[in-house]
Design a protein around this nucleic acid. Structure first.
Length: 764
RNA sequence: GCUGGGAUGGCGGAAUUGGUAUACGCGCUAGUCUUAGGAACUAGUGGGGCAACCCUUGGGAGUUCGAGUCUCCCUCCCAGCACCA
């Protein structure tokens, strides 16, 4: 008897699989296709921790099962490598992000490969590779040509000391994360993508896809569709006269007779235009300055004490009552939702009421309800905002446009793509807050492609989300230098059949990529209107004790150590067994031993095989059914527990039959591919277990003839009895009431009712 | 604050979706083996009680023959909130 040696077995089979290309997806095959996808990782300098591979293993189980079910499976991977952490590291150390990215992704690749995940490595992509981002830039230009990419003034977080725009995440308690300086708001021209043009379809088409209900709900809430009306209020003032009106958006136009004042967002353009009429301008301006410092979460917090300032000297006319009502500005009205102005109905809206009470504004309790159509026009609004698409940073795709003195914004011609990211000496943004690219005059100053006159390159780069908005398309044809992917391959492989990812990406990445996909669909560049047929999400693995795994807490577990001590198969089984896949669970190194013991029991069972005997069919048929069904629902934890129960039951027997053992290895193989492959070949099988056919179960073998049911009295379990499946209800009830223990509990009392739940229980 | 998710033994969790609560695993206890430690194997393991029985799914109320599961109220924990990936 040989002992189980995970190191030898795992190394051996990983080598053979790679050499034979077992997991390569075939672009033309007679088999039906199956495209499974995980969110490609960001290769950080810290390397993989044990939480990262959980989704990869989960989708690997699905992918491996599909191969055995006869599908031509595409399960690809790549690197989403542009972004802040690498850039900040470059600023700090002066190292070239290209070099850092290479080093990190090499490390990630080595770590992931050691887990035996069936990725097709021949299609590996990297968003920072010019051959890849050429197409990210090309797609951006299509947005530009269709008028969906535009420039607008936006407010950004600005650190006056570092002279750098900050992500919200980099602002901690209103101060810059690195230097602690108080962050300011600054207006800056930004590239925008008009995702709101697709809001209606992004909402409606959710009906067509198989996403989990929570994911659909999260997307719907984010898009925030609401129907209401826009109503115009005339503005009046004694002197000087005004010809202005203010448009408000309300979902309750019927409450207009109760509207006693109007509130504008402090940023509303009208406020500036009304300056000549406003008599308390200093106060108004002071309030606007104050609001600029707040974050949105602070502004809309419901427990926050309402603040605001009346615009003295101007009034609005309620079109229903014809009465003059005051105009206020307050931070609880947001500039980018609706029209940035509301009519306040304190009797019907809690926020308006609180505001009215604080500032002693009138509240009308009983007013006439108006008809919907009487005032204003019916309109659909969305909470969704257009996508701020430019960054004043180095480590991203350069936005491929040229600013010409005469022609304005000119797209870089296709033949000049990609616009490669030039090397720089310093990764720090310029003093004016422009990207460090602005310092390279040789790169910036170019001829206008249109008029050959003086031109300057755009120095902003794209956000990290750009490359990840279309990567699943590139996998279908990752080496194509003429198109982002050929229509032939797209027609064969897309849509993605099953996409699993983190909850945290539900509203941004998932929505962005659906938007890009729909846009490409409208240009007839992709064959389907939705990118992903099915979407599920996984829970995170937390550190021991249930806190986040992070370097600063010092609780990071590196999979390398686990693979070394216990083996990849044990790690895989453990990660699938530890808890429900869609929920976060705490890591426990102590508990891994259980998964290792299980694999060793499976290993030892090979020495108890007897050929050509049949005696353990019942257990395996039940097990196949349960494991097959559980995997489809991603109930990997209960699938493993079923496999464990099988081993515990069969382990008690003297022998196991070879046929049954083989079926067991097959259904275990998606979880523990190395050890099952080794055992499979030990049995004399010549072909890889990957090329075998997923076993089916026989319902007839699973059926029991006699089953145990429970007898309850007043809902409490008092006795058990065996019944024959053929027995009829009356007979079973009779048996139950004559049961000795039950008689004692009934104690000659009157029986009101007997409830029989088929094959389960009787309640008296 | 808003939106979503969650709370079941000492710990991770299971429960055929309203029908035997605590499957499976860790840990723990005892035994076998071992010079010892470890490993492995066997048995036991929610709490109380000598027992009959009683209690138990974050807390409280309700619906039901029957509630971990449904309804209402409350407490606590986690995630996201648009420039992190």
């Amino acid at each position: 008897m040989k002992a189980y040696d995970h190191k030898k077995i795992e190394k051996k089979w990983q080598g053979i699989w790679e050499k034979k290309g077992v997991y390569h997806a075939d672009n033309k095959s007679k088999k039906p296709k199956y495209y499974s996808l995980i969110e490609f990782p960001y290769p950080s300098g810290d390397g993989l921790h044990v939480g990262h591979p959980r989704p990869y293993i989960g989708m690997d189980v699905i992918s491996r099962k599909r191969r055995l079910e006869g599908f031509n499976v595409l399960y690809p991977i790549g690197w989403d490598a542009f972004g802040l952490p690498t850039e900040n590291y470059a600023i700090k150390t002066g190292k070239d992000p290209r070099v850092v990215t290479k080093k990190n992704s090499d490390n990630y690749r080595r770590q992931i490969k050691s887990l035996g995940i069936s990725f097709d490595w021949s299609r590996e992509i990297n968003t920072t590779d010019p051959k890849y981002y050429k197409w990210t830039q090309w797609i951006f230009l299509q947005f530009l040509k269709k008028g969906l990419a535009y420039k607008a003034k936006m407010t950004i977080n600005w650190c006056p000391k570092d002279k750098i725009g900050l992500a919200n995440e980099e602002v901690v308690g209103g101060a810059c994360e690195r230097c602690g300086t108080l962050v300011e708001k600054r207006e800056k021209e930004q590239w925008m993508l008009a995702i709101t043009k697709y809001a209606e379809r992004l909402d409606k088409d959710l009906d067509e896809v198989d996403y989990s209900p929570q994911i659909k709900l999260a997307q719907r809430n984010w898009i925030g569709r609401s129907e209401g009306a826009e109503i115009e209020f005339k503005i009046v003032s004694p002197t000087p006269r005004v010809g202005e009106t203010v448009k408000v958006f309300t979902t309750r136009p019927d409450t207009i007779f109760g509207a006693t004042y109007v509130v504008l967002a402090p940023e509303h353009a009208l406020v500036q235009r009304l300056k000549p009429q406003i008599t308390n301008w200093d106060e108004v301006q002071g309030y606007i300055q104050k609001v600029k410092k707040e974050t949105e979460i602070e502004r809309t917090a419901e427990d926050k004490i309402k603040t605001g300032v009346e615009l003295k000297g101007v009034k609005a006319i309620n079109p229903a009552t014809k009465e003059e009502i005051p105009i206020w500005i307050a931070d609880y009205v947001l500039p980018h939702y609706g029209t940035g102005a509301i009519m306040a109905v304190p009797s019907d809206d809690a926020r308006d009421k609180e505001f009215a009470e604080k500032f002693k504004l009138p509240i009308i309790e009983n007013y006439t309800k108006a008809g919907f159509e009487d005032f204003g026009k019916k309109i659909t609004k969305f909470k969704l905002r257009d996508w701020v698409f430019s960054r004043q940073r180095y480590w991203g795709e350069p936005i491929p446009v040229i600013h010409c003195e005469d022609c304005g914004i000119v797209p870089v011609p296709d033949k000049d793509l990609p616009v490669e990211l030039p090397k720089v000496k310093n990764y720090q943004p310029t003093d004016s807050g422009e990207s460090p690219l602005a310092n390279i005059s040789k790169w910036v100053n170019v001829k206008c492609p249109k008029c050959k006159g003086k031109g300057k390159r755009e120095t902003d780069t794209m956000p990290n989300w750009a490359g990840s908005s279309w990567y699943y398309l590139r996998y279908t044809d990752s080496k194509n230098s003429k198109e982002f992917s050929s229509m032939k391959n797209l027609k064969y492989w897309t849509p993605v059949d099953w996409y699993n990812g983190g909850n945290e990406h539900t509203t941004l990445h998932l929505l962005y990529s659906r938007f890009w996909h729909k846009f490409l669909y409208d240009l007839k560049l992709v064959p389907t209107s939705e990118p992903y047929k099915k979407r599920t999400s996984h829970g995170m693995i937390l550190g021991e004790g249930g806190v986040k795994m992070s370097k600063s807490l010092g609780n990071v577990i590196n999979p390398d150590e686990i693979v070394k001590t216990y083996g990849a198969d044990t790690l895989r089984v453990y990660e699938m067994f530890v808890g429900p896949f869609n929920q976060s669970v705490a890591w426990s190194t102590e508990s891994i031993i259980g998964s290792r013991r299980f694999i060793e029991r499976v290993w030892n069972l090979q020495y108890k095989i007897q050929k050509n005997k049949k005696y353990d069919e019942f257990e395996i048929e039940k097990t196949i059914k349960k494991v097959t069904e559980d995997i489809e629902e991603m109930k990997f934890n209960t699938a493993i527990s079923t496999l464990m129960i099988f081993i515990n039951e069969v382990g008690k027997l003297e022998f196991i039959s070879q046929g049954v053992y083989e079926k067991f290895l097959q259904i275990l193989s998606p979880f523990a591919p190395h050890v099952t492959e080794e055992l499979w070949s030990n049995l004399g099988e010549k072909k890889s277990i990957n090329l075998s056919i997923w076993p089916k179960w026989d319902e007839n073998l699973i059926k029991d003839e006699e089953i145990k049911i429970v007898i309850q009295v007043n809902g409490k379990v008092r006795a058990e009895m065996m019944i024959n499946l053929a027995d009829d209800e009356e007979n079973i009830k009779k048996q139950a009431v004559s049961n000795e223990i039950i008689l004692k509990h009934i104690d000659n009392k009157e029986i009101k009712k007997i409830i029989y739940v088929k094959n389960r229980l009787i309640n008296i």
